[in-house]
Amino acid sequence: MDDLTIVLLTLATLSGLGIILALILYFVAQKFNVVEDPRIDEVEELLPGANCGGCGYPGCRGFAEACVTTDNLDAFYCPVGGNDLMKTVANALGAEVSEKDPQVAVVKCQGSPEHRKEIREYDGPQSCAIAHSLFGGTTNCANGCLGLGECVEVCTFDAIHMNPETNLPEVVEDACTACGACIDACPRDIIELRNVGKKSRRIYVSCINTDKGAPAKKACDVACIGCGKCVKICPFDAITLENNLAYIDYEKCKLCRKCVTECPTNAIVELNFPPRKPKAEKPAEKKAPKTEDNAKKVIAADKTEESKPNTNQE
């Protein structure tokens, strides 16, 4: 055999092999072809692709598969894309969808070391779930934040960070998509999804301590002591008291801020309101007409200045 024959032979063998294998592949692909609704791909294209699971389905594709099966998308909501995205999806599928109020995560604990004295040490893995299984925490508050940052770890959107000074997580409002991953991760149900509210203004009880007043106050300066003052003053019946703990219903709250001033322990927090007028004047409850973009939240009757969670994004 001369060299040319060898080259030709090799070429022929390999080409032949290629053709045969291609044929096999073709037939196999035909036989095992799965007919899929092409709209699934279309919808998936539209979705953010974060696979956060905030919609309740396994990833964006799972959500897309579920979406194409129905005409009414009311039961579906992608927290990342929000109402705009759901409208686009509905348009693409020719389905209907109603608007939902956008939500954001809030951390309901203000127990920084300044307010909540650390009286014991924890030695173990940086895992809230493990610490929670061990004990009430390094302070006397057995409900509050353990400060080990499991919520930060699970966040796909980099929307929650530990503040090293307060040792509490802080939500970056603009980045939070309300997917709920941090809520599942927190063993103590400290984080709650609340409606974003008009101009991002929110009022909530930033405490989840269910102890009676005296031990709660002893454990933490800014604990809700269940005194019920806020319940009485609320003109809209938005506040309920259960297990020594007040809760503000965001659907009913009209953001009048009366409860914030009333709370004796500053456990009620207001977010993104313009600064109050000086105390001497009568507290005017009308919202300030002009919006100040850099408006930071202020805790009412501001005695303690800097120590609150949930500062706005810088």
């Binding site: 173990g124 893995p125 895992s127 779930a129 493990i130 299984s133």
Partner: peptide, 9 residues
Amino acid sequence: VPLLDYIRL
């Protein structure tokens, strides 16, 4: 490594 901490969880 705190093996049992994780296993117990």
